[in-house]
Design a protein around this nucleic acid. Structure first.
Length: 424
RNA sequence: GGAGAGUUGGCCGAGUGGUUUAAGGCGGCGGUCUUGAAAACCGUUGAGGCUGAGGAGGUCUCCCGGGGUUCGAAUCCCUGACUCUCCGCCA
């Protein structure tokens, strides 16, 4: 959420930002400011009336205590509550409208984000490693998975439906090994503390991180409750500190969390229909940082390299892409995607998305910190990124480490977790 | 699932309709004393909105959330959430 006072003072900058993000309803801003002015005006009137009421009521109490007659004052006060109530209702309605508009406005982009309409204008920041060379035609992971009897889409469809997978045998073990491997690297080498949050979250948490109210159709909602399946650990982990004021000495706070993620994938019909690239349920390790505003750019870069370290240890070829203005997510000020090489598709696929949310989520979720005991609390900055998506990593290993005879070689760093060095 | 008890500031905790402007304590911060520290003593100490200048000052809101009664609500009423205890069931 943007600070309404910031919007007031930087009207043209905010409008330009919305335009760069392909935001359609620029009139919202004018309407917002109009409603806000009206709110302030009514609030002042209401405050004056309340002051009058409070003063007189207090007087009544004092006079009564002295046994004096209060009927004069009483008749003077009695008309006030109705007026106040009327005003308060108007103010509530206005504030509701103001808030609704604010909640649908995207974050301000970082000044280093390139302008662009869509993902074709994203900027390749770096390329790490090399594409593996095959003496044969590399197979897609779904074929490898079926042949090795480790991925079973037909039975998953029977159990649940499309876009689910049943992992079997070494496939299930490899998935579990990847979870442990990544958590170990982040906690032992990259300085993260491990948390395991609830996988189901409430509407307030989703509003705090920005999924609600705008993107409800992407979520699975549980019937007869106000609960949703978490689409990413970003939601429960960021909301750990909702409505809290943190101590500056405790910052930065860095959490790594394993959770399954659940996404309705509305609007993605026809995309990635084969394989495990786009599932309704997938496992992910998420990295989340709570930092001081002045540290967020550096910590964002650090988080990116922490995520990259996993791919490097696994010997997977990847590139890092800086998303352009039109492709940067709603809550983010700046996003790097890490894209891993998938030989069968002859392309790079997103395996991690690392974003700096500045104070956007902190303002929604009301997460602050205090520099010293005397100073006013300020909003913290939040940063997060996948470190990494487990299913896509598994797919990348299958495809990149396949051999001519159809077996899979396990990357060295993983063998101590899988306890096998090959799937055949 | 059944029965009961709770939720007050960073923490503990008093407060059952009117000088509550939320007592008192702990913790924090500042000071006195001390070579330094501790102890003791003194002072101070929540968040947010509006107005002012992002100051001083003023004012409003916030005692778990929402609604109501009243001139006046932490206190009374309705409703929701959560926590705890006991019983039952259970991985």
């Amino acid at each position: 959420m943007l600070d309404i006072r910031f919007i007031t003072n930087n009207l043209e900058t905010v409008k330009l930002n919305l335009k760069n993000r392909n935001y359609k309803n620029l009139d919202d801003i004018d309407r917002l400011l109009e409603l806000y002015e009206k709110t302030k005006e009514l609030k002042n009137t209401a405050d004056t009336l309340k002051n009058e009421r409070n003063t007189l009521s207090k007087k009544i109490g004092m006079l009564k205590a002295q046994g004096q007659d209060v009927s004069d004052i009483l008749s003077k006060v009695q008309s006030l509550p109705a007026q106040i109530k009327e005003l308060d209702e108007q103010i509530n309605n206005l504030e509701y409208d103001v808030n609704n508009i604010l909640l649908t406005l995207p974050n301000m982009l970082d000044e280093t984000v390139p302008f662009g309409e869509n993902d074709t204008q994203n900027v390749i920041v770096k390329v790490v490693g090399e594409k593996p060379k095959f003496e044969f035609e590399p197979k897609p992971h779904w074929d490898l998975g079926a042949e090795l009897d480790i991925l079973d889409f037909e039975r998953a469809a029977k159990i649940t439906g499309s876009r689910f997978v049943l992992l079997k045998n070494e496939g299930a073990q490899l998935e579990r090994a990847l979870i442990n491997f990544m958590l170990d690297v982040h906690t032992a080498e990259n300085g993260y503390k491990e948390v395991m949050p609830p996988f189901i979250v409430n509407a307030n948490s989703l509003t705090g991180t920005g999924q609600l109210p705008k993107f409800e159709e992407d979520l699975f909602k549980l019937v007869n409750t106000n609960y949703y399946l978490a689409p990413t650990a970003e939601v429960p982990v960021t909301n750990i500190f909702r409505n809290e004021i943190l101590d500056a000495d405790d910052l930065p706070i860095s959490y790594a969390a394993y959770t399954p993620c659940f996404r309705a994938e509305a609007g993605s019909w026809g995309k990635d229909t084969r394989g495990i690239i786009r599932q309704h349920q997938f496992n992910k390790i998420e990295l989340v940082k709570f930092v001081k505003p002045e540290d967020s750019k550096i910590e964002h870069e650090k988080l990116l390299s922490d995520a990259e370290s996993i791919l490097q240890k696994l010997g997977l070829h990847y590139r890092v892409v800086l998303l352009c203005s039109g492709d940067t997510g709603f809550a983010s000020s700046k996003t790097y995607d890490i894209e891993v090489w998938l030989p069968s598709q002859n392309t790079y696929r997103e395996i991690s998305s690392c974003s700096n949310f500045t104070d956007f989520q902190a303002r929604r979720a009301n997460i602050k910190f205090r520099r010293t005991p005397k100073e006013k609390p300020e909003y913290i900055h939040t940063i997060n990124g996948s470190g990494l998506a487990i299913g896509r990593t598994l797919a990348a290993i299958l495809e990149n480490y396949q051999t001519a005879n159809g077996s899979i070689k396990i990357p060295d760093a993983l063998i101590k977790y899988t306890k096998f060095s090959e799937i055949s």
